[in-house]
Design a protein around this nucleic acid. Sequence first.
DNA 1: CTGTTAGCGCCTTCAG
DNA 2: CTGAAGGCGCTAACAG
Lengths: 340, 340
Amino acid sequence: MKASIQDVARRAGVSVSTVSRSFTRPELVSEKTREKVMAIAETMDFQISRSATALKSGQSFRIALLLSGPVTTWFNSHVFLGLNSVLQQRGYDISIYTISTFEARKEFFSTLPVRRNADAVVVCSFNIKPSEVSRLRHMNVPVVGVNISDYNGFDAGVKIDDRESMKTVVRHLVSIGHRRIAYIRTTHDTPFTFSADERLAGFEQACKEAGEDVQSTVLHCPIIPNPINSAVSQILALDPTPTALCFQTDDLAVPVLYRLRRYGRTIPGDFSIVGFDDSTYTSAIGLTTLHQDPVEMGKRAADKILDLIATEHTDQPFETFSTQLMLRETTSPIAIESED
Amino acid sequence: MKASIQDVARRAGVSVSTVSRSFTRPELVSEKTREKVMAIAETMDFQISRSATALKSGQSFRIALLLSGPVTTWFNSHVFLGLNSVLQQRGYDISIYTISTFEARKEFFSTLPVRRNADAVVVCSFNIKPSEVSRLRHMNVPVVGVNISDYNGFDAGVKIDDRESMKTVVRHLVSIGHRRIAYIRTTHDTPFTFSADERLAGFEQACKEAGEDVQSTVLHCPIIPNPINSAVSQILALDPTPTALCFQTDDLAVPVLYRLRRYGRTIPGDFSIVGFDDSTYTSAIGLTTLHQDPVEMGKRAADKILDLIATEHTDQPFETFSTQLMLRETTSPIAIESED
DNA sequence: CTGTTAGCGCCTTCAG
DNA sequence: CTGAAGGCGCTAACAG
């Protein structure tokens, strides 16, 4: 049914090597021969089989992407897009492994289902234990992290400085007069900690550094059943009322902002609000937020992976991406209260 | 370095077939032998190579997913999630091909880069020409559509009834008294038409069927540079002002809703607003919208693909999923004007 | 229930 | 520049 490389060779009156080279090392074949081969391959609907190439080369041409949640989140899908945009062209597919429960975690790292079937492993946005890192290393392929707190044992990694970024947010709010600031985070029943947890640490540190007159509060909002409800009700119940709200992510900030306005609060009048991510449509909405670029991070991670696969080395294996506070319409200055 | 099936066989004192069978057809191996083999495989870090399995079986264990835009959109990422959740367990990876320009379209269908390297092709949410369908058929693998208008030439497909769904939206608005209704859609410089275009057709048809006193308008908002701006300015400029706004997608509705409120309009007081998709957080925001479930569609599409690969047949190859209008806070009845 | 063996389709020396 | 040939790791007869 499908033409093999043999068939093409026969039909073109050349050897299989020549057909093979015409596809993979065209510079080694005379132009005339190559053109003839390619033309015949075209009519016979022939293409090099990636499975055969993979087998022959000993590579799997798959990259394992480990996620702790659905690929549909803003961050995950954009990292995936970045990785894929680079890797796909080079013949790699991405196999996604979602590890969202304690059992799945244990199962994954004990059985290591990707063993021998991935040319690299990417751990995206959650922290794993040293023992788990060494299990991954056991696979003898590059282990690369995206937004991982601790790169110990990793061959490469890309990240933003979550802690410092959140400190930037707080410093800005303080600089425009805010003194009562709340941090709103989600909590879930997850087996992992996340680099986003660093944001909270940054928040607390920055508030402390800002001096004694800055009052900070942290609100914990369980994902189940509904973090938005939890956030809105806790915010409204706070006494004294904060003047500024820092959110762990835009995904949380946007709906809460909505709901607060529905409850008659003005933004930025009653509350200044700052998100985190600069995700889709936050600019349209006018949300002040901390910008990061997960697509670019994915691309750079992919570059490093390709380097590591090719040469077991990559310049600058660990890279920290800059972020920027996008000042928009949900924040405004407050008159600094005069001291008595 | 890496242990092969031979090494395991040798170490276990059995033949390679026995090792192979222990992994792929355990029921054909005595429990005792199998346990021994698996234990040794474990210590040697052995796993069946998917590339070798693929080569041997003649399958590629890859499914090509054709998209017309980034995988990060709500619809695309959720379909991908659904497909992947079923296919991954069965050993398939998904290769994403994004075709977003006229040149890319021509290039893709003329060179068919996936030829012989995919066991099925999924066309997700854009329409291709009959000649392009037949090019895909040329690959001799199942061709499956997700939200495709015309299934001619496809082996299977899943979809919602976009036209009828939008008619439901309009009928509801009319039934609660609205008589001046605008439809807001995006336009882009894309080589394709989309099943979402059916929504517009449904809108126009339903308005017509609703009678002469229903006035409808269609606003076209170019994606570049900014569809939200375009939508907001056009809506505010309409005279007479519509009382209800139907949006092609939630992604468009949500920011526009935001901005309209910022411009002092009340929702649903001045405008009733209906979205389309029921995407993430629209329930938190209280957006009335048309619910669809792309994850489920992806899963069902994957089931059909597996059937088709296994038996060249699937029961009920074409499936239309039901949708539901989610009545929330952005719509309200209007007093029906008495006729003079 | 287990072993032997012939390829699956390609790539890569090595010769010419 | 081109051809011949071994073998990548596994699976599926077939034989026992």
